Amino acid sequence: MQTTQRRENIAPVLNRTSKLAISGIVIAAYVVIMYLTQGFAFGQYQIRIATGLYALAAVHPFLVVPLGLANLLSNTLMGGLGMLDMAGGLAAGLLTAGLCRLLGRYNIYLTAIPIMVVPTLLVPVWLSYILGLPYLMLVASLAVGQAVSGIAGAVLASRLKGRI
């Protein structure tokens, strides 16, 4: 009986097909959420609910790259600010998801920190250049939206940990 109880607490090992399917579902979910929320995801206060999905990299480390690609794809389809925004979005996505993975190993709720901090400080670097707006003004507007996404992402990851 003890052996059975131990196995229930260990996450199942996923094969390549399962990883590919989960990656595709997460990318699709990210893009669909961005599409449905683009009215306020690309506005003055960028409340990007989809960035909360970065926390899933703490649950499944293989999602780091797919989450970065999801950001690239959404910026390509909906952003309209060109190559710099697309490349920057990819870099921000990879860095944020990677840090979520690292911090999530210690405590799943720590995944809120990179979601709140990385996009808030990194995205305005190129947006200030593209839009001709002050960096600190963009940081302030992104901080509002990323706080919501960070908390939502950490709660989502905590609920899904060990379930998928």
Rank of each mutant, 00 (worst) to 15 (best):
L20K: 05
I33M: 08
V31G: 03
L94Q: 11
A58C: 10
A58I: 07
A21T: 14
N71I: 04
Q46C: 08
V32E: 00
S18E: 15
A87R: 08
G24P: 03
S23R: 04
A41Q: 07
L72R: 04
F42L: 14
G88R: 12
V32Y: 00
Q46Y: 08
G68W: 06
V13D: 14
L95E: 04
Y54Q: 06
L56T: 07
I33C: 02
Q46D: 05
Y54G: 05
L67N: 02
M34P: 00
M83H: 13
G52Q: 03
G52V: 01
A28I: 01
R16L: 15
G68S: 10
R48Q: 11
A87S: 14
A58N: 11
L36N: 00
L90G: 08
L95Y: 03
P12I: 12
Y45F: 15
I49K: 01
S23Q: 03
G80V: 12
G88H: 13
L90E: 06
K19P: 01
T17V: 14
V59Y: 07
T17N: 13
A21N: 01
L84H: 12
R48D: 01
L94R: 11
V65I: 15
A97H: 07
L90I: 09
A87K: 08
L72M: 15
S74N: 12
H60L: 15
P61Q: 11
V31K: 04
I47H: 04
V31H: 02
A57P: 11
L84G: 14
M78H: 12
T17Q: 13
F62C: 03
L20D: 03
Y54D: 13
V32A: 13
A50W: 01
Y35I: 00
A41H: 07
V31T: 07
L56I: 09
I25V: 15
Y45H: 13
I33H: 02
L63W: 08
N71T: 10
A28P: 04
G68P: 10
P12W: 09
T37R: 05
V32S: 00
L90Q: 09
A29K: 00
A57E: 08
Y35A: 14
G39H: 12
Y30M: 05
L67S: 08
G88M: 13
G89V: 10
K19W: 02
G88W: 13
A55L: 02
M78S: 05
Q38F: 08
S74K: 05
G24I: 03
A97T: 05
L63C: 04
N71R: 11
T96Q: 08
A92F: 06
A97L: 07
T17C: 04
G79K: 11
G39K: 12
A91Q: 10
A57Y: 09
V32F: 01
L73C: 04
L36C: 07
S23K: 06
L20N: 05
L94S: 10
I22M: 11
A97Q: 07
A50F: 02
V31W: 01
V59S: 03
A41T: 12
N15V: 09
V31D: 05
A58P: 11
L14S: 09
A57V: 09
G93H: 03
I27E: 01
G80C: 12
M34L: 01
N75D: 13
G68I: 09
